[in-house]
């Protein structure tokens, strides 16, 4: 589904991603963790061209990511993304947030788009908030709307960029539950997160990144109980100690 080979990315002189190779097959759930500045967010943002890479290749569902705007827009409409700070459109209602892309990208008739949006708001358990504005919802509700908004494009892959990092502890669970349901429905997911409980429960593979490199790539059982690399062990001991 996603094939990344020999990927390099620089911010000015800073070498942010170093020779990344990563393949994610259909239906696979991959969790990426690592210290801040390790390049994990940059990596998934390269997949839908929110960041531009300088070397190597990325292809999504057979489409190679190039400078061609049509390729970029095709990949973006197949790849859903959920952000740390939700990035909902504050001037639109929840329902309008969800119908926007189906209406203007898929050119769907208004009634179909609305039915679709209601279906996905139902899936994330907030159908009753459809006519509110994002500013009237709690953080957890906003993030679930953001998930529904991405799902309304019926993407083949979902990218999550630290989806629970900006949430109060009480709200993290409701978002994780939604993500678990999504994973159980067979969605291909690439999740940047430090929620190790989530990784243990749904991930097929856990990836540890540090200094722009993939250090460890293993199934959760091996990753948590028998990490191969010293840096992974150190990282795990820090975040799992409490």
């Amino acid at each position: 589904m996603i094939r990344i080979t020999g990927l390099h990315k620089w911010y000015g002189a800073f070498h942010a991603l170093k020779d990344i190779d990563l393949t994610v097959s259909e239906g696979e759930r991959v969790v990426i963790c690592g210290p801040s500045g390790s390049g994990k967010s940059t990596l998934i943002r390269c997949i839908n061209r929110l960041e531009q890479h300088q070397q190597g290749s990325i292809s999504v569902d057979g489409t190679e990511l190039t400078r061609d705007v049509r390729d970029i827009e095709r990949i973006r409409s197949e790849v859903g993304m959920v952000f740390q700070h939700f990035n909902l459109f504050p001037h639109l209602t929840v329902l309008e947030n969800c119908t926007l892309a189906p209406l203007w990208v898929r050119k769907m008739p208004a009634t179909d788009a609305e039915a679709l949006a209601r279906e996905y708001l139902e899936r994330v358990h907030i159908p009753e908030q459809a006519h509110k504005y994002p500013g009237q919802l709690s953080g957890g509700q906003q993030q679930r709307v953001a998930i529904a908004r991405a799902l309304c494009m019926e993407p083949k892959v979902m990218l999550f960029d630290e989806p629970t990092s900006a949430l109060d502890p009480e709200m993290i669970k409701e978002v994780l539950d939604t993500m678990i349901e999504l994973a159980e429905s067979g969605m291909t997911m690439l999740v940047v997160s430090h929620e190790m409980g989530f990784a243990r429960r749904v991930a097929d593979r856990v990836i540890f990144m540090d200094g722009g490199e993939i250090i460890e790539d293993a199934p959760p059982a091996d990753f948590f109980d028998n990490p191969q690399n010293e840096r992974t062990r150190l990282f795990l001991s820090r975040i799992l100690s409490d």
Binding site: R74, R76, L88, L100, M153
Partner: peptide
Amino acid sequence: GQVEAAEALGLS
């Protein structure tokens, strides 16, 4: 983030 969210949805 507003522009990024719109781009990620594939909006022109």
